[in-house]
Design a binder for these strands. Structure first.
Lengths: 218, 218
DNA sequence: AAAATATTAATAAAAAAATATCTATTTGGG
DNA sequence: CCCAAATAGATATTTTTTTATTAATATTTT
């Protein structure tokens, strides 16, 4: 058995894709799915799918595949999405409100419970059924029992000060969409989302394509 | 010399971060930077920074570091961002308009030249200084000379049909923000952006944190 | 001018992830 | 009931990515 492997980044990042596909299959009335089908439908190598699913601890039946409901539960367990995570959102610009409007987060165990901004134009308004609070009231509003995670969607120029407020409030997990490296004390975990990363991948693939080097594409 | 390593995904995804930091340093008036400083400021392991930068072909001076301008150019070359990429955006919902409003893409060599949607409410309107065209006019508008890449921000239910339109128009590179696996012919490259992937990472780290297993966090 | 130091750069090792191979077993069809 | 096909599951190999070590060298300090 050996030491169980627990944190495999590429696998973890693929998990939401499996989850999404499984939810869709369930909605379509399927009860079971084989890794063969998943691999084909999702355009992921069969062996990768097998390995990923094995990590969740789900067991399948030969010639039948995996029970979709069980697999969904196993993946959610693996990701820690079985129980709800509470969240606060900082900054309701265009990206912030896009995230606020992303219904699927509910399926992923994320519940955005409060929304803050510093723009007087926005404070007090209701955006996507969330009242926007003044960022300066954050300590008073969240200090007594901070949410599980915070989502930073403020402009780069304000992100560090917002992060410091969050630390003061007692938040330990920050999902950072701003384009800077946040300085936080030890014990606070920041997950930085670099949207441009995907563009970089696409651009490099395109560059190689243009150079006639197909070998390394995809 | 051996075969030059060309496509290293994690490195490519880190490149925009370096670029961002370098642009900031330049704006602050710096002319040189050492990997030591970059590593500290960006919270990336020193050796990772060194390896990444070595891949771009930039050369630095001992005790001085790298010339920022040269390093920026080298990174842009490496990513194929030296010359502009033209793009079309499909779907101006909240995510689509967030992307449309993301000024920094200009720095990354991306120019969104046209915007399409199928919602009659949006067609003809001007969103972030882009007129929204009817998706059904895409072939007529782009067919004669398709842009370099397409950015799909339509709901999952419409993503596949939009992708098929894009293929017809002759687009070869698709940046897919919809949450499904697109089926495209060989020769068309799809880069799928899974926003929930970052949430998955954060959730898993949190799960381990709660279990007192700090070893695998960051 | 010599010594100390910060830094690049090259090489080597380890760890992580992807890929390949093989085996065993269940199921459906004959 | 037996056979063949499909597929889970285990093991092994290769590739990729990260981390460590060492050497060289330009700059600063003494």
């Amino acid at each position: 058995m050996g030491r169980m492997k627990v944190l495999n980044s590429p696998t973890i990042r693929r998990m939401p894709c499996y989850l999404h596909q499984l939810l869709r299959l369930r909605l379509e009335g399927h009860s079971h799915v084989s890794t063969t089908d998943l691999a084909r439908d999702m355009d992921i190598e069969l062996i990768v799918v097998r390995k990923d699913i094995a990590l969740t601890g789900a067991t399948g039946r030969r010639r039948i595949g995996y029970e979709i409901n069980e697999l969904i539960d196993k993946i959610k367990d693996y990701l820690g999405w079985s129980e709800m995570m509470s969240a606060t959102l900082l900054g309701v610009g265009s990206l912030g409100s896009a995230i606020l409007g992303y219904d699927e987060f509910n399926l992923y165990g994320l519940r955005i419970e409060s929304v803050f901004d510093s723009d007087a134009e926005k404070i007090g308004k209701v955006i996507r059924s969330h009242e926007v609070y003044d960022i300066s009231s954050i300590k008073q509003r969240l200090g007594y029992s901070p949410p599980d995670i915070a989502i930073i969607c403020v402009p780069a120029a304000n992100a560090q000060e917002v992060a410091e407020l969050l630390v003061e409030v007692g938040i330990k997990f920050i999902w950072n969409f701003s384009n800077i490296t946040l300085k936080v004390p030890a014990g606070v975990v920041v997950q930085r989302e670099v949207i441009a990363g995907g563009l970089a991948m696409l651009a490099v693939k395109r560059k190689h394509y243009k150079c006639g080097n197909f070998k390394n594409i995809e």
